[in-house]
Design a binder for these strands. Sequence first.
RNA 1: GGCCCUGUCGUCUAGCCCGGUCUAGGACAUUAGAUUCUCAUUCUAAGAACACGGGUUCAAAUCCCGUCGGGGCUGCCA
Length: 448
Amino acid sequence: MSVRVRVAPSPTGFLHVGTAQSALYNWLFARHQGGKFFVRFEDTDKERSKKEFEEEMTQTLKWLKLDWDEEITVVSNNLPRHQEMLSKLLSEDKAFYCHHTKEELEAERKEQEEKKLPPRHVCGFKNNERGKEAGGIVRLKVDETSDRIIAFDDAIRGKVEFKQSLLGDFAIGRAADDPLYHFAVVVDDVDMKITHILRGEDHISNTPKHILIYEALGFSLPVFAHLPLLLGIDRSKLSKRHGDTAVANYMNDYLPEAIVNFLGCLGYTFSKEIISKEEMVQEFELAKVHKSGAIFDVQKLNWINSQWIKKLSPQEFKQKAGLPQIPDIVVPLITERLEKFSDAKEFSYLWQQPEYDPSLLKWKKGELSDAKSALEKVLESFKDISWDKETLKAKLDEIAGGDRGMVYWPLRAALSGKEKSPDPVELSLVLGKEEVIKRIDIAVKKLS
RNA sequence: GGCCCUGUCGUCUAGCCCGGUCUAGGACAUUAGAUUCUCAUUCUAAGAACACGGGUUCAAAUCCCGUCGGGGCUGCCA
């Protein structure tokens, strides 16, 4: 049987990096197995779900190049089916209406905590006539007297067990025509013939509930696999207070290849650290996914991004960095020292004249007057010189005598207007003779 | 509180299943050095971890028990 997996985010915000990671592992598993990967929007929470978030998530998934099979589905579109299944359970007496108020339920939960009892709602309505009267929320009947152990073999963690008696009669619908997540997700996964459910570890304790729903509905179980969570610096579940959690916030500074590479390696150890998703597909094995959560460390992301940036062709770089006007020849000078695209603007001196204070021209071992005379000598000798690396270098060394800094520093400063930059010979080569002479001339005038 | 998952350098991890080859390896980060006018790249080096306590064994990061720590869930959110 062919593998079918899905990622099912709820469209209540921008695509979270954790969701992106989950999508990636589902995608990797599907592609490795030659199966199908689907995207489904879990909009059972009508209050918070928004169409614009669906659109945003779709665009972001595309940007990550995690291609899905068939059209994206939306849970609410399957509502008639959910209602049908809910009614079925109700009529088969496997589910019932709970008429307790929120206040009563809350009081019950509070009391249970105080008495150190397991938190569960064993509903008094499940076995009396009022439980059949429509109104209130719909709960699944769970036999609290059973000593059954609900167990499943997690493809990542191995055997996981829960006592059925601790579950209580959990809610599956706000009303007979309004399914809750736990119910809708099961029905949809069945309808889509999902074979493996790879989702975040935060769903482990929901799994026994889902198993009970599968059973009540008479469907066979898929394979479950719970992915480790992405953590913030304090090791709690990654959330907004830890920084940017929306993939969208990384789109301007990072390459999708870097994000995918980073996310893939947080939760799995591949044969190498810089790896494309196609290469990941080759190696991916579900059982090798890590069990414990990993901290989302931007420093590592930055390094990975810098590695991917270095692989870019000049054309690709200019387009991604939003600098289409710059000459190809300056690109390597930038990519060699770039971690994030937004930092590219620091190198504007490569395509436009820099602004700087004349004092910058003074080298630490000399005076301003030394800089001036050095620049004048360079200016003079550059006017009629062969414009290649060896010649320029030889000439500058000759002018400098023994102390290269006396010439290199002021020249480099004159060309870049920065304390830190590529060396003056490289700058001269990419800037061109005419521009170099112009900039030296400006520098000399600043010192006059 | 209850239930469940998890625990190797600061971070991501290899090793653990099938005890000895582990004076615990790699990467990021940090520090120092080489190259160098500066920065970056590159290279070299250094510091840095088996949560703790028992047990089994000739031998334990690896097996067993317990403790502690971290996290998740505990909703008419997902």
